[in-house]
Design a protein around this nucleic acid. Structure first.
Length: 426
RNA sequence: GGAGAGGUGGCCGAGCUGGUUGAAGGCGCUCGCCUGCUAAGCGAGUGUGGGGGUUAUACCUCACCGAGGGUUCGAAUCCCUCCCUCUCCGCCA
């Protein structure tokens, strides 16, 4: 949600953002509706003022004044006039509200201009791609060979593009979750949460998944609840409607959640193995910070996510997303992509974004800069730290050995019963 | 699922036999006084959002007491629907 006053004051900037993000919303229409609604609201306010005055006079005389009947009649007339304006006002008001929810966030000035994924900028690369004396296999072959993954049987349970881990594969999932949560809570100062994995429509609108991405969501019909597509939804909504104390900022929240995405339209494209699944585990990092600090917080959160990859000894690169690839709610975003040697591709494992006050406006998360001052909207920052399936894909592919086993990076071994290799025997 | 209680300002908590109550009181916070320092004490101030107005203040005005409807000249207060919390009973992983 953008500030209506900002839309009035810098409509060109908003128009530019709408174009850059490939959204079809008319800023002209918004401005016209805004004017119409304000004009009518002003009339209603004036009618109410007169009504209140008359009511006050009736109250003072306990309704015994000589002209009480005429006053009552006058108020009845005012009520009818108000009702009429309100009825006329309803459709434009709803349309305005709806259009505002469809208006994307404005990219930060530091975001590279570009039309789409092809114009994202590689900021830097970390680590060396592994070299092999043999032809490295993709993770789906390794997963089957070592009995870690069973794609075929997963389909029996929930259809295509679900995953079923077994044996040491399941242990690997559990170990990675604990490894990541321990790192972020012990070393990076995050408070751990275990939230619901379903969310209300209001919560989903709050973080910006709705209304735009409704087709990508799984929904329970009665009562209506959405399966969360990311832990960002529950974590950010925890403080919905609250005025936070500035001495508790910035907040750092972390949670493991399952994430559910229909990935409508993605069939047949990059969907083999763990590359794109409907349900996956993710450790999510969220920060809620004062506006002037939010870009520092973004860099710091990005470093927290990067450290996971460094400890796992996985080569990765950091991308600055260009304006055309920026998501609906983001003002700036870095993607972390990990190298997967068996597929010879980079796989996205984290998006770290600053939403500025976009989500905070939708959810009503504010703070008081100092006592006696009006509350201000906070900034929200979040990123994966990390999403599991592609990390697992990279671990298997990059660490495979000539013997057909998979080496476990040092940092992860304590979480896998001290094992140095996955061998396929449990 | 059944029965009962309740949802009020940053927090706690009155009001709920309808009328100048945006809301007593307390806590917290801000400013001032007092005091070797601190604490205590004393005084004043302190909800949110919108509109109008001003160079900017001042000022004027509307809405908001879980959400949405209704009754009424007038609703935090009465009626209806829904949501949520708590207690007891039942059921259940």
């Amino acid at each position: 949600m953008l500030d209506l006053r900002r839309i009035r004051e810098e409509p060109d900037l908003i128009r530019e953002a709408v174009r850059a993000k490939h959204v079809d919303v008319s800023v002209e229409r918004i401005l016209a509706l805004d004017q119409e609604v304000r004009k009518a609201a002003f009339e209603i306010d004036q009618l109410r003022a007169e009504k209140n005055k008359l009511s006050g006079m009736l109250a003072k005389s306990r309704g015994q004044a000589a002209d009480a009947p005429q006053m009552r009649e006058r108020v009845r007339g005012i009520n009818a006039a108000i009702k009429q304006i309100e009825d006329e006002l309803k459709p434009p008001k709803e349309e305005l509200h709806d259009l505002l929810l469809w208006l994307p966030n404005v990219p930060h000035v530091s975001v590279p201009v570009g039309g789409g994924p092809g114009e994202n900028v590689v900021d830097r690369t970390w680590g060396e791609k592994p070299e092999f004396s043999f032809d490295p296999a993709p993770h789906w072959d390794l997963g089957s060979a070592l009995s870690l993954l069973d794609q075929e049987r997963a389909a029996k349970l929930a259809g295509s593009n679900f995953s079923l881990y077994s044996g040491h594969g399941a242990l690997l999932v559990r170990g990675l979750i604990n490894f990541m949560l321990d790192l972020h809570t012990r070393e990076h100062g995050y408070t751990e949460y275990w939230p619901p994995f379903l969310a209300t429509r209001q919560a989903m609108v709050g973080t910006g998944q709705l209304p735009k991405l409704e087709d990508d969501m799984y929904v329970c019909v009665s009562p209506e609840l959405f399966l969360i597509p990311t832990g960002e939804v529950p974590l950010t909504n925890i403080f919905r409607g609250e005025i936070l104390r500035s001495d508790q900022l910035p907040l750092r929240l972390v949670a493991f959640t399952s994430c559910f995405r229909r990935e409508a339209g993605a069939y047949g494209k990059d969907t083999r193995g763990l590359n794109r699944v409907h349900q996956f585990g993710k450790v999510e990092l969220v920060r809620i910070a004062e506006p002037e600090r939010s870009y520092d917080e973004l860099e710091s959160l990005l470093a927290d996510a990067e450290e996971v990859l460094q400890l796992l000894e996985l080569p990765y690169r950091v991308l600055s997303l260009c304006t055309g690839d920026l998501s609906f709610a983001a003002a700036k975003c870095y993607d972390l992509e990990v190298w997967a040697a068996g597929q010879e591709r980079w796989l996205e494992v984290s998006s770290c974004s600053n939403f500025e006050d976009f989500q905070a406006r939708r959810t009503g998360i504010r703070y008081r800069p100092s006592s006696g001052v009006k509350p201000c909207f906070l900034h929200t920052i979040n990123g994966s730290g990390l999403a599991l399936p592609r990390v697992i894909a990279a671990l298997l592919e990059n660490n495979q050995t000539a013997e057909g086993t998979v080496a476990i990076p040092e940092a992860l071994r304590p979480y896998l019963g001290g094992r140095a290799f996955l061998t396929g025997t449990t």
